[in-house]
Design a binder for these strands. Structure first.
Length: 235
DNA sequence: AACCAGGACGTGA
DNA sequence: TCACGTCATGGT
């Protein structure tokens, strides 16, 4: 990762924040009905509130959402979460006793039901074993179904740990801007952000959410990034 | 009617 | 390490 691009990392953050404002991630069921303006779902976000989650059940909810949204639109993951909520199983003790086939049906709308149902069982066992402790990144990564991005999402949004989340949109945007290589590694991109940003949880939380919001507007259909307003900040 | 969605895993170079 | 196929459903 090239060092001369360091200051651009912060410049781009400020530009995105001025464009879209506080994103209120991670969305939580309790905040359905709040009133953010963003693309896609308008439910669950809590702009300018950095005190969430406020209990273990909400941490568990974030973990479930992080798995359900893997390679899947949040609107679909959210429907699955709502089904689980109706069944009263956004609760580790209830979830661990839930019938596997019932779980599959509840999350079918989020896709990959055979894998994700097992992943959910795995992370539920892991969460119970924590017994309230804060997991390390290495520990979370031992759970089947939790890769780099899901681990960082859980640490950043459920545990407020300063771990930058890199997703496909992040790579797509910053490749288009000429800041990273075509096949940059997850860790390489993660380190680019973490080494050029204050180690501040709200900034990490907002930045990743802003990248997703920006990508939904300019990087979904090809050609990616046409008329991206961020291009003004390059060279 | 292809293509993509807030990826991860298993396999074989 | 790294590239590639696979996993499922829903929206555009």
């Amino acid at each position: 990762m090239i060092k001369i691009h360091g200051s651009q990392v912060m410049d781009i953050y400020e530009k995105l924040f001025s464009l879209y404002g506080s994103q209120g991630w991670w969305p939580l069921m309790e905040h359905h009905g709040d009133n953010p303006t963003k693309t896609g779902s308008i439910k669950g976000y809590h702009p300018e509130n950095y005190d969430l989650p406020k209990n273990d059940n909400q941490r568990f909810e974030i973990m479930l959402g992080a798995i359900l949204t893997q390679n899947t639109a949040w609107t679909s993951a959210e429907k699955a979460l709502f089904n689980l909520h109706e069944l009263g199983t956004i609760n580790p003790e209830k979830m661990i006793n839930m019938d596997l086939d019932d779980l599959k049906e509840a999350i079918r709308c989020a896709g990959f039901l055979n894998q994700k149902s097992v992943y959910i069982q795995e992370i539920t066992k892991f969460f119970i074993s924590l017994d309230g402790a804060v997991p390390t990144r290495k520990e979370i990564l031992t759970v089947k179904g939790v890769g780099d991005e899901t681990a960082d999402s859980i640490l950043l949004y459920a545990y407020k740990k300063p771990e930058f989340v890199v997703d496909a949109y992040t790579k797509r945007i910053f490749y288009h801007l000429g800041i990273i290589e075509d096949k940059a590694s997850y860790r390489g991109v993660k380190e680019l952000f973490e080494s050029n940003l204050p180690r501040d949880v709200p900034i990490f939380q907002e930045y990743h959410a802003l990248i997703v919001e920006h990508a939904k507007r300019y990087y979904q259909k090809k050609p990616h990034g046409s008329y991206d307003p961020l291009m003004e900040l390059i060279e």
